[in-house]
Design a binder for these strands. Sequence first.
DNA 1: TTTTAAATGCAACAATGTTGCGTTAATATT
DNA 2: AATATTAACGCAACATTGTTGCATTTAAAA
Lengths: 135, 135
Amino acid sequence: MQQCCVNILHMKVTRNTAAKGAILDLITNSDSALSHSEIHKLTADLCDRVTIYRILDRLVNEDVIHKIVNLDGTIKYAKCHHANHVHIHNHVHFSCEKCLKVTCMENVQPSYIIPRNYKVNDVNFTLSGLCPNCL
Amino acid sequence: MQQCCVNILHMKVTRNTAAKGAILDLITNSDSALSHSEIHKLTADLCDRVTIYRILDRLVNEDVIHKIVNLDGTIKYAKCHHANHVHIHNHVHFSCEKCLKVTCMENVQPSYIIPRNYKVNDVNFTLSGLCPNCL
DNA sequence: TTTTAAATGCAACAATGTTGCGTTAATATT
DNA sequence: AATATTAACGCAACATTGTTGCATTTAAAA
């Protein structure tokens, strides 16, 4: 018994399938975060539309990819970056107004001051404008 | 000729209607940002679903309300706060995980450092966790 | 009061996301 | 290698969300 991947929320064993591998490759090798529809177009007849939704949910629950909400409300997916087995979700993203690409910004740490009667669990910081390629 | 409101993008005169007034009142008096579906439920049979979309678009273009993208991708609307005729869009919001309310945070100014080859036009900063009421 | 065109309701459509269920296939067990 | 288990799949159906065209209504200027 050698399980390779688990859903960290339900501690259930998940399986590696062709479609899952292909979609993860796509996200891993993309220089920007991808939406469901973009993945659907890029994979053509790899699998059903519903299957893509389920694979994305699984990869998020396995903590392999993470969701990014774009400024227009569309949801995109990008690879998670782990450091020394400690998982640090990077929630700083740049959304280019021209090429519409969403990229994760490593090493950008925003600072802020907020009243004490709020408990902050998550930080979502999206900057929009022009990326280096479109400037 | 006494025009009361204009679409600042197209400089076209807009009209005050019962539905528009009621929806603006709703947003103005709400302590949290409201989504299209929330407004639809709260207004019952005030007007058609499509009309709500159009009224919200109009109010955004008139610079009276602004859009907020929630962490789950849903779009919410809140009143704009102007100071001395100078319009300052406040893009810092708090999204409560428990009561699901989205509130605008005045006076919170995040600071950040970003590479020079990016041109930032807009900042969207959403913190999530527990609000004072749910803490 | 008349004129105008902005705003509305309605129907139809497109896009996006979800659910149930029978079938397929990845993986552990024998 | 064969078998058993059940996660993953395809497909159909459905729910939600957002858009567009067009005839009608109505706010506001003339």
